[in-house]
Design a protein around this nucleic acid. Sequence first.
RNA 1: GCCGGGGUGGCCGAGUGGUACAGGCGGCGGGCUGCAGACCCGCUACACGUGGGUUCGAUUCCCACCCCCGGCUCCA
Length: 390
Amino acid sequence: MQLVEVYMREYFRDLDALGVKRPDISPRATGQLVEMIEAIQSLIEKGYAYEVNGNVFFDVSRFEDYGKLSKIKPEAMLAGSRFEAHPDKRDPKDFALWKRASKDALLKWWSPWGYGFPGWHIECAVMGMKYLGPQFDIHGGARDLIFPHHENEIAQCEALTGKKPFVRYWLHTGFLTINGEKMAKSLGNYITVRDALEKYDAEAIRLFVLSTHYRSEIDFTDKKLRDSETNLGRLYNTLENLEGAMERSLGREPTEMEKQFEERVEELRTRFVEAMDEDFNTPRALATLFDLSREINRFLEEKKQMSTELLKRVHGCFLELGKVLGLFQKKRTKKVSEKLVNDLVNLLVELRENLRSKGDYELSDEIRAKLNKLGVVVEDTSEGSKWKLV
RNA sequence: GCCGGGGUGGCCGAGUGGUACAGGCGGCGGGCUGCAGACCCGCUACACGUGGGUUCGAUUCCCACCCCCGGCUCCA
């Protein structure tokens, strides 16, 4: 339990760093033992489960819809199976709801069937239903969980509640590979979130992930992450271009041309929303964002003074769409280090010395006066110019 | 072996029964710049794994094959 605590904190730390929102509830299996035992009992009573030697199994033959998610035909499941079926099972397809614990098991709980621990699938089913109710709108998970885990969750929950479907939309994500091969400790080619964050910008990592549809496999390579950084820079440039234009804009009504442009922006906004509505098609949404970016830059090329009102709305729209993808959250107030201040003042003083040696006292005096105003006192001594902050 | 997903331009990656508008990266050329950067424009682009079939028409539907990935109730 202590371990769980540690990993949970570490996990949340990484989520925060990536800009992923934390869940409202993060339940633990060990906190729902009573509910799990109740659920298993209920399944036995309803005839969907049976107990043998302190083990409880779900009777797959009693659940007609079994296999509807993974499209696996129960008859075909046995062929080629890599493992021996548990001897107490009536049928190899049945899966464990409760497992008898061995004497020296570290984790075990008392139950109507003796000491044991819950099966994997019942944990999620019970926790989910406890907090979300008997039916979910959306259930996520990676592709490898479709069978058996999600299939078994459906069997348990629908058998328990009689309500179908247990889940309306399944969101199954593709795998993350690295340089074309799967990440594995044994291959030594894995990368942790923390390593990645040290090397790449958090929003660039987001952009990388979003550039492939969530259902597809995604391959982590250095080049792609760099590309993502370039791409992110592009979007931020547009943001800065817009902000620059806003500074020199005018408080007048938008012109006809500006109104037309705004309509175009609105059109792209709609396209973005449509892409997201279509099963979170983030690559297409991103494409629209880049279209928008290019068109904003093109429009700004005019270099005319634009209507403040118009620019505000366009800027708001661009920010809004980026925010949907978790972008543009960076604090862009450039942090100025003490070293940079030193270097910059030194640079100015050096340039000024140059001017003085050439006899341009007018400009060098001006520089000294202006620095003075900024709180930098320059003193010309026989050993050269010195400066200090006041 | 069985089940599922996939093979699109130099690279990545969307999409679709009717000339492939995706988008990005890279490369080339041009514009704007005193120069550079940013930005814009054009080109790169001769891209839909292979072979059949259905269709007036297939990259898109069907079948077979090849290759890649995952699952097949160990553990979570």
